[in-house]
Design a protein around this nucleic acid. Structure first.
Lengths: 190, 190
DNA sequence: ACCTGAACACCGTTCAAGT
DNA sequence: ACCTGAACACCGTTCAAGT
């Protein structure tokens, strides 16, 4: 990439982060180009799709989330690790208002620039889930895709003004539903 | 209303139902007017907002849902009634793809034409929830707003192609989380 | 009393023309 | 090699003009 292009790229990235933080994932691409003082075609050249832009915006938070799953696996008990990561996952999908819609559309679409990111998150969660299921503390009738869907639905709740105040509490309710009685009893006795 | 206007009104209603069934709640209003062979301003005259149109489209299904809550209260045990109505509620919010977003926006906005419809649904559910809580079969730490939010989130899952296949199963998982151990034990012994 | 559709202010996406 | 912005095909919403 030419030096001037690299400069525009990072400028666009910074402006996009700002606009998306303000207006959410449905922000107008025209508005981003406008604020960056760049032709609309230039934005498309650097980020050919909305998904490509978000892939860039989310990359570092995504890497953090994947790393976190590994850490929790070595530091926490299976049930606690699963629930803690579930919360981190919800926080991640709430990085930007509306991003969860983009992720829901990408998880089953190999063409999407966000596809790999989404499947990585799903796998990281599936690992923690399987570990918790193997020790009998997580219910056996859900899989990694279910865990991802539940995370997404809680992210969506947080995006809706009317539901956001209760989203945290509902995350607790659902997190507890991931665990088995055996786990819940053992925590009471601890 | 003049006779010709009444005729156009019911024609618009029928065409809107058709287009929305095909394209979801985000369908273009222009497209509806076009297919109805009516000026765009005429659509706006009959249904001044998207919410007003959906209020009309959903009215009868909404009435059914409210009546159903009363019926279940007199025919079913508190826990079973709650869970059965929870499923009906999810089916209702799934009447049309994307309608759940409209409802989420309306529940806390008294200006919305859908506001009354949404609060009616929420109340009907709250009654069944309170009854189940009074007999100790539903967990005490959720309220009618939580129940409504959970229904909405499951409706949203059903709207996402990637999540829809598991939405039914996830509804089971969450429905069971609404109930207490006491209820679940009593069912096992039955 | 009711209907019409042009007008306005926006979108996303593409691509010939410029530097 | 890269950037530009007009062009195209859409939106939602309003409102003067018509019947």
């Amino acid at each position: 990439m030419r030096a001037d292009a690299r400069k525009i790229h990072s400028h666009l990235f910074a402006v996009a982060r700002e606009v998306v933080a303000e207006q959410g994932a449905a922000a107008s691409l025209r508005e981003i180009a406008r604020r960056a003082d760049v032709g609309l075609g230039t934005l498309y050249r650097h980020f050919p799709t909305r998904e490509a832009l978000f892939e860039a915006l989310l990359r570092s938070a995504l890497d953090d989330l994947t790393r976190k799953a590994g850490e929790l696996e070595s530091t926490d008990a299976p049930g606690e690790a699963l629930v803690a990561w579930f919360r981190d996952g919800i926080a991640f999908v709430r990085s930007y208002r509306g991003v969860v819609e983009l992720m829901a559309g990408a998880i089953d679409d190999p063409q999407s620039a966000l596809h790999a990111s989404c499947t990585t998150v799903r796998s990281a969660g599936a690992n923690l889930l399987h570990r918790a299921q193997a020790t009998g503390v997580a219910r056996a009738d859900i899989d990694g895709a279910d865990l991802f869907a539940l995370m997404a639905s809680l992210g969506w709740l947080g995006d809706q003004a009317a539901f956001a105040p209760r989203a945290g509490h509902l995350a607790d309710v659902i997190a507890s539903a991931l665990l088995t009685d055996r786990h819940l009893r053992s925590r009471k006795h601890a």
